[in-house]
Structures are given as structure tokens and as C-alpha cells.
Design a protein around this nucleic acid. Sequence first.
DNA 1: TTCATACCGGTAGGGAGGCTAGGTATAACA
DNA 2: TGTTATACCTAGCCTCCCTACCGGTATGAA
Lengths: 115, 115
Amino acid sequence: MALEKGAQEKAEFLKGTLDMLILKVVAAGPIHGYAISQRIQQISKDFFQLPQGSLYPALHRLEERGWLEAEWRDTDTGREAKFYKLTRAGRKQLEAEMLHWEKLSDAVALILRTA
Amino acid sequence: MALEKGAQEKAEFLKGTLDMLILKVVAAGPIHGYAISQRIQQISKDFFQLPQGSLYPALHRLEERGWLEAEWRDTDTGREAKFYKLTRAGRKQLEAEMLHWEKLSDAVALILRTA
DNA sequence: TTCATACCGGTAGGGAGGCTAGGTATAACA
DNA sequence: TGTTATACCTAGCCTCCCTACCGGTATGAA
């Protein structure tokens, strides 16, 4: 995932969190890919800027694993788009990943404080 | 970095934080590789279990980038070991990475709360 | 009408990082 | 003697994310 312009440190970063963030956004209700990237950027106050070359492969990955389901539908503007929604397995996966993230960030914080 | 036994979710995880954690541990004073992995495991209460196949390549990477300096010395037990210490650039890098981590985890938290 | 810009989807190829699995060697201990 | 812990290392793989492209449609400006 790309970083905002201000952050120089190499556009590269937290491999492994993208799936969780996408699942979380989709959990709020059916949404299409392009809108997901906008939503992530918006909520994170432009910190995350998800390139399409990361977005679409991630969506396909999540669908292939049975965590997302896709369906072509019309958007508000009358155009076609692929709407994703969480499967039951996807919801479980999201819960697991959020729990995992919590433990992980706690452990990192512990080291940054203690070491 | 490997996860504790209890955590099933695929031993794979936060690519990109390992360097920061190592730098932080080394920042506390000269220490050799094997001890670094023990320290990380200890402080994180066994959450992180750093495999040697991750540890040593990471140390070489950090040395190559000029963030760590190595020197062979004797341990308490009279054996030889490669002790690492932070360079000036390494200290700057650590600060930058900690700042980055803070912003990033805030952004993730924001999405997990808001989305 | 034509051009630019958002919107909306996609792929190929590569780089980077962490892991598994293997290796070497020494010291302590049963 | 064999096992365990210490201490270092590397090859090769896998996954993930990125850059850089490709396609198309709708809207509004020039």
C-alpha cells in the first residue's frame, strides 16, 4: 500500500494488514473495489493510498479464499461495478485478524517501550 | 517472525517491523544476534519467536545499510560472538521507523474503529 | 467535437522480506 | 557418549505489494 506524499519512507510497508483493512471496510456493507480504496484513503485521512495494482489482486485473493463474494451491480451513477460482500468465513477471518492485530501491536508496543 | 504456538494464523506476519524491533533492542547496548532473538521473545512474553533464518539475514541487511556495526567479542561464558551496536545512522533510522509505526498503527486503528 | 479527468476493472513482472530446512561448531551436562 | 543449548550461517521458496501498463465508460470543459 502506498503512503501519503509526506511520508518518504519508501512507500512499502505493512505486508499482511491490507487484507484485514479490506475485509473491515467490506464488513460495513456491499461495496465495489474502487470505492473500497477511496474509503480506506478517506478514513485514514489520506495516510493510506491503495494502488490499484494492490487492490484488485487482493480482492481476487480474498474471493478465492472464500472470504468475499462478488456480484455485478449498478452503482448510483448507473454504471456497472463489482460489489463485494463478506461471507460467513470472511467474517470469522476478520475477527481472527483483528484479534491477531491487537495482540501483535501490543507486543510491538511492549518492545518499543521496554527494550 | 514466527508466532507463539497458540496463535494458529500462519506464522507469517508483519513484514517490515522486524528491522525496527531489532534496532530497538540493539539500541539498549551492544548485544549479539542470538541474544537479540531471546530478548525479543522474552520482552514480548513469547509472542514473537524469531527464527534464525529471519534473524541473521536481517542483521546482515541492517549492517549492510550502515545501521549496525559488528565486532567479534567474548560473551560472559567465554565464547566468541558477534556483537552489534547502533551507528549514528541506525539511531536516526530507528527514530524514523518508530514514528512511522506510530502513525501507521493509528491509521489502522482508525479504520478498525470507523469502517 | 475533442480532450481531460474521474470512474471502474484488470494483468505482468519484479523486488523485498520472512520462513523452512539445512549446515557448522563449541560448551555443558547426563 | 549423546543430548541440549549456544552461536553463527545460507539456499531456496513463498507471499505480498508495488510499478507500469492495458482496457473501457461517463462527464464536463475547451
